[in-house]
Design a binder for these strands. Structure first.
Lengths: 369, 369
DNA sequence: TCATGTGCCGGAACAGTTGCAGATTTTCCC
DNA sequence: GGGAAAATCTGCAACTGTTCCGGCACATGA
């Protein structure tokens, strides 16, 4: 439909100049460059090779492409994206924005140069300014695992508020009153949700948020270790902790074990899980679970809907999370001796059966792989 | 240099026909198809878009692209590949051979269609026939983490024989005489190495391989659980086990903990690690460690050497692994009471200092991320 | 024998890119 | 200020690969 030569003609230029703009070559006037880019966005141009259009989407990371520290989130996400791309036979290409982008060029130019029709953005810390700029350039995109208030930004993410509420209610019902929160120290939206759920739950239960019980750290394994150290050093120890990311939760379990702090007898733990890690520790971890694979799948298929059906309005999709009760939560040590013995029994039963069911399912899926 | 039209001319054909062959279009004679493909391989043709050559390499998986069950190996590998590709600004594209390949077309055709200059092959089970076919087609390629006897196949892999020997010697030195082996049940070369090291070490120590002590299972978490179940059910239990892959090792640790079997007191364990998982469990796991990130880096840079310098002969590179003594290995329970108390003490010391050093390094690298 | 169909291929027109040359403007020096 | 040199900017033409359409040759059937 719209070719380089067509755009050139409509602007009274040569195809060569338009091509130069698209590839961010030097030696083109700033004014004509802007005019060309405007037109490119207006007509929704995308490059074709020969006469065949190229069906490639990018998975873009702001900095380093793959962070191993994020545990199994990235592989699961990628797997889901590939599943989503399958249906229409799109290809996937890695892009590191930080490395490949020329400071002088726009994001549209960068993505065009890479031959991309659209891009799935993995947005980490505070890349919001960049993301919004990309959205404003109208390049087909979708952000995965992050929330934006800006209505022009498309995103798919998990809604962990509800599950976090249920996790907290579970702890409260078991009798915990001193509940710590181990949370990421940079404010992405997922963690904001979880913090809000923590505060709301306490509020509804008539309790107040104690700043001393909130541990803000990077989302890392060692952060979990530090949380345990902090708890142990306290005069009035909390009896439970909600760790809002998987690595921190694992760090907590390991350090507790190292120090002889028994989970769940001495400390109850609700963690977070992106895949199957919760059943790879003992006791099996009670956790808020998000499905990173589905996240990738939804992002990919939403993006392709934009590309093929040409829908213009932003996509904002929330995927549910689940709260799974397993072996790291129990009544606090003091109240275990107290009144609610029958209640404990029933909780114990419910937990056990659910855990067993999970175990079976988990094993089956593993052996299939 | 060599274009579609040039090839066409040398064969007395039209550019259209050559293009049809490269894209596996129907309506082209079987004989001319073969002639074109021969010529394409001979002159080392690769597609350019416009007049500019495309700098893209593929990361090809035979079946499903990313297996989350493989733990942190895949992300680490990808990260290394991206590092290797950085230097010459190549791009990386995902390819699932099983999904995208037309049964009628050659592998060269497939990769050409995807616009790839070369391909890094992640070869899982018994894909050797496919790999050899690709190598025979002369398409620039390199296999990662797998060995081939065929001298025409390039590969980069870790050599785990030496470290496995050292691991076994460590166990033998501690006094273990009944050592079990938990190994992958399909014969890839890595696991063949480890099995050979196991047998050789026993032989040198004057012991014989007992078939009852070898557990062959898929490389999965649940396999590790089954190994522990098997050991517990035995009349004469082994006092140590060498698990040749990370997930199985983790499964062993978890199941042991679940059953109240104390590691290393009741059972010593040497595991395997692709990244940092060994320090995410307690006790920290003694393990044979391979560096998946370096593996990816070496594969990528070797491939680019082939692409740019045009070297023809196959690359066969072995990366060393290390054996790290940590907290899951100790003298067997019986001999601990016996004579070698001083020896135990020194081993205990050595282990402790090395573990601490590792802990510091580990923490630092985590906080940098 | 003639009509129709099928397999196979080439020409032309399309896609995007780049080298070279020309045109215009700016800079600089006397 | 005038003129020369340099820098900037743009277009033409020639190059990539791909697809559509038409034509040739051969086979098949009535």
């Amino acid at each position: 439909m719209s070719s380089v030569r067509a755009i050139a003609k409509s602007l009274d230029l040569s195809a060569a100049t338009v091509s130069r703009v698209l590839n961010n070559r030097p030696d083109v006037d700033e004014d004509t460059r802007r005019r060309v880019l405007d037109m490119v966005n207006r007509v929704g141009y995308f490059p074709k090779v020969g006469a065949r259009q190229t069906d490639v989407v990018g998975l873009a990371y702001p900095d380093e492409p793959v962070q191993t520290e994020y545990g199994s989130f990235e592989p699961a996400l990628q797997s889901g994206i590939m599943r989503g791309l399958d249906e229409r036979q799109y290809d996937l290409k890695f892009v590191s924005i930080h490395r490949d982008k020329d400071p002088e060029e726009t994001y549209t130019q960068l993505f065009m140069r890479k031959g991309l029709r659209g891009v799935i953005l993995r947005c980490f810390r505070n890349d919001h300014a960049m993301i919004q700029k990309i959205a404003r350039e109208q390049f087909p995109m979708i952000v995965v695992a992050e929330h934006f208030d800006d209505p022009s930004v498309s995103f798919v993410r998990s809604d962990s508020y509800d599950s976090s509420r249920r996790a907290m209610e579970h702890l409260l019902l078991l009798g915990h009153r001193q509940i710590a929160l181990a949370i990421h120290n940079v404010a992405d939206s997922d963690h904001a949700d979880r913090r809000r759920a923590y505060a709301d739950s306490l509020h509804v239960a008539g309790l107040s948020v104690q700043p001393g019980l909130i541990f803000e750290n990077p989302a890392s394994f060692s952060a979990g270790e530090r949380v345990v150290d902090g708890i142990v050093a306290m005069r009035e120890r909390p009896t439970a902790v909600y760790a809002t990311n998987p690595m921190t939760a694992l760090g907590i379990m390991r350090r507790a074990q190292q120090l002889g702090l028994l989970i769940p007898r001495d400390l109850s733990l609700v963690g977070m899980d992106d895949s199957d890690v919760r059943s790879h520790v003992w006791p099996r971890m009670s956790a808020v679970c998000q499905d990173a694979s589905s996240l990738g799948y939804e992002a990919a298929s939403s993006l392709m809907q934009v590309l093929t059906d040409g829908r213009r309005h932003a996509v904002r999709k929330l995927l549910p999370t689940t709260f799974e009760v397993n072996g790291t939560t129990a009544p606090p040590a003091s109240s275990a001796m107290g009144g609610a013995t029958s209640g404990d029994g029933s909780v114990e039963m419910a937990r056990k059966t659910r855990a067993d069911a999970k175990a079976k399912r988990g094993r089956k899926s593993i052996e299939k792989a």
